[in-house]
Amino acid sequence: MEQKDDTLFIKLIPYIDKYGILLLIAIMLLVLHLLQPDVFFSWRNITNIFKQISWQSMLALGVFMVIVTAGIDLSVGSILMLSLMALAISSRAGLPWQIVVLVAPAVGLVCGMINGLGITILRMPHPFIMTLGTLYIFRGVGNLISGGVPIGGFANQIRSIGNGKIKLEWLYGEGAAQYIPSSLIIIIIIYVIFWIFLNQTKIGKWIYAIGGNPGAARAAGINVNRILVLVYTLCGFLAGIGALILAGRTGSAYPNAGLQSELDAIAAVIIGGASFFGGRGTVLGVFAGVFIMGLLRNGLNLMNVSVFWQQVLIGSIIILAVYIDVLRRQFGTRK
C-alpha cells in the first residue's frame, strides 16, 4: 500500500511542477476574498492589481529570459528610469507623440544591447558585474539628462497607453463603471508574443539550451554570444516598454522611478519557479510570480498591514518557494 502511494506522488510531480503555482494563486485569492469579502473581488480592486503589476511584469519578463540563460540583469530598474527620463525630455522638447512613444522602447533596447555587448565583447566574468556597473551608469545618465528633478506633462496619447480604460458599457449598460485597463491588454499581448518566441521558435529553444549547458549549445553550432546579446537587448527593450506604461500611470518622470525594482523582478521570476542556474522556467510561471507579489501587496494594503511586514513576507515567500523547489527536485530528479 505504501509503495502505491509513493508512485502516485511521483506521478503527481510533473503536474505539481506545472500547475502548482496556479493552485497557490487560487488559495491566495480564496483567502483574500474571505478576509476582505466586500472589497477584494470588486472590479475596481482587481483592475487595480493589474495596473499595479503592469510595469513590473515587463521587467520580470525580461529578467526571466536573462535568468534562463543562467545570467542576471541588475540594471533593468535603471534602464526603466533612463528610458522614462528620455521619454519625458523628448516630450518636453515638443516632439510629436508618435515619436515620443518610440523613445522609451528604443532607449531601453540600446541600454540592453550595451549590457549584452559588454558581457560578450569585454568578456566580463559574470553578467552580475556588467549589469551592476550599468545599474549605476544608466541611473546616473538619467539624472544627468534630467537635472535630477521630476519632469511631467505628457500628451494624452502617451498617458492613455499606461492609463487607458476600455469601457465595458456595451456589456454592463450605459454609464457602467466597469472597464479593462489598457495596461492589462499590453501585458497579455507582450506575454503571448514572448511565450511563442520562447516555446515555438529555434532561438527560444537555444535560449533554454544555453542556460542548461552553454558548452553543449556551442558544440551544437549555436552562436552563444549572439543569442546572449539578443536576450539582454530584449530585456532592455521590455524595460523600455515598462517605462512607457509607467509614464502613463504616473504622468511624470521622477528620479526614483524603478529604484530596486530589479530585485522585485528577480523575486517574481524565482517565485514563478525558474531556476536561478538557468535552463528552466516558464513564461506563465513568471506571470504567476508577478501576480503573487501583486496580490500579496494588494491584500496586505487592504488589511492595513505595515509596509515593513510586507517586506518580511515577500522575503519569506522567496525562500519558501525555492525550498519547495529544492524538495521537489530531490524527489523528482536523478542526481
Binding site: K202, K205, W206, Y208, A209, G211, G212, N213, G215, A216, A217, A219, A220, G221, I222, S275, G279, R280
Partner: peptide, 21 residues
C-alpha cells in the same frame, strides 16, 4: 564529446535536433 554535450533541461528530441531543428 567526453563531457556529454547535452542540454540537461531539454528533452530527447530537443537534444537530438539542437542547432539543426
Amino acid at each position: 564529446y567526453q563531457n556529454l554535450a547535452l542540454a540537461d533541461d531539454l528533452d530527447v528530441p530537443s537534444n537530438i535536433f539542437l542547432g539543426q531543428e
